[in-house]
């Protein structure tokens, strides 16, 4: 008994050591960003790298927050929050619905459509940009928030659907069957039985769709024109002139700031990972 607890204690310590060392590797970029955001522009690129700012400045944050004066970064955050939250909620609902269909139901053309689903991720978006733009224009979606989150209402993208489908296929059919015997409708099975068992992957979807919608630069760039609708990545980009000149310090500062909500969401969400899924209760 003693030797096994010693071994597990040693293993735990070893784990902590390894994790901490690796953490340095992963933390470094954020560290670089944070530390650079407080350096005056002329110091950011100095060689050798200044591990701690010699001169401090808050100017980048002040300039960044002020943004356009009439439109402050607070507004930008609000826009981004709005679009992101709508996207995340819509994605979770629609992607699980579709994934359930692909995982559990049998219907004509399912396999072909599943391959089509995957195929939607295989065509580089550069070549569908013009017709997509035209379609959005026809639907009067140009320069609206809706252009940014409309995709979320249609499944949110093959990535999420495929992911959830894999998870659902890992759940035993017995659950469905016993519910079916009890007279449950298909939707009931989806909503009350399968969905709750997907909580790890649902948390993952929330984290991923939040992060990706939040950080999405290209879609708002192309479809938004009104400055007061800008989201965080687009707003940060307006500080950068050609080839990396311009207010690099401000871009770094606002990027650092923008990571805070992401960190909060991630940390809160992954805590629910610990709880794991309810035991696959085959009883009843």
């Amino acid at each position: 008994m003693r030797s096994s607890s010693f071994r597990s204690a040693a293993a735990t310590v070893a784990l902590y050591v390894v994790l901490s060392l690796l953490s340095l590797l992963f933390v470094f970029p954020l560290y670089w960003l944070v530390v650079s955001s407080f350096k005056p522009l002329s110091a950011i690129f100095r060689i050798p790298f200044e591990w701690w700012p010699v001169d401090w400045t808050f100017k980048h944050y002040k300039d960044g927050w002020r943004f356009m004066g009439s439109v402050t970064f607070a507004r930008v955050y609000l826009n981004t929050a709005y679009v992101t939250i709508v996207s995340v909620v819509a994605t979770v609902f629609t992607s699980t619905l579709v994934a359930f269909g692909f995982a559990r139901l049998r219907f004509l053309g399912k396999n072909v459509l599943f391959v089509a689903l995957l195929a939607t991720m295989m065509l580089p978006t550069q070549v569908t940009l013009v017709p997509t733009f035209l379609i959005f224009d026809y639907l009067n979606l140009i320069d609206t928030y809706a252009a940014l989150y409309i995709g979320a209402f249609f499944g949110g993208g093959a990535f999420y659907i495929f992911l959830i489908r894999q998870f659902i296929m890992g759940l035993p059919f017995d659950l469905d069957e016993s519910a079916r015997l009890d007279g449950a409708s298909t939707f009931r099975i989806y909503w009350s039985i399968i969905l709750p068992l997907c909580s790890p992957v649902l948390i993952t979807i929330v984290i991923l769709s939040f992060t990706w919608t939040y950080n999405d630069f290209f879609t708002p760039l192309i479809f938004l024109s009104s400055i007061e609708k800008f989201t965080v990545p687009v707003a940060i980009n307006t500080f950068l002139d050609e080839a990396g000149t311009g207010k690099v310090g401000v871009a770094i500062a606002m990027t650092t700031l923008s990571v805070v909500p992401l960190l909060a969401v991630f940390f809160a969400a992954q805590r629910r990972f610990m709880q794991g899924i309810a035991t696959t209760g085959l009883k009843g």
Binding site: F26, P29, L33, S36, P233, N237, L240, V248, L263
Partner: peptide
């Protein structure tokens, strides 16, 4: 963390 910032200009 890297996944948060990988798309930013600073990186």
């Amino acid at each position: 963390l890297p996944a948060f910032v990988s798309s930013s200009i600073g990186v």
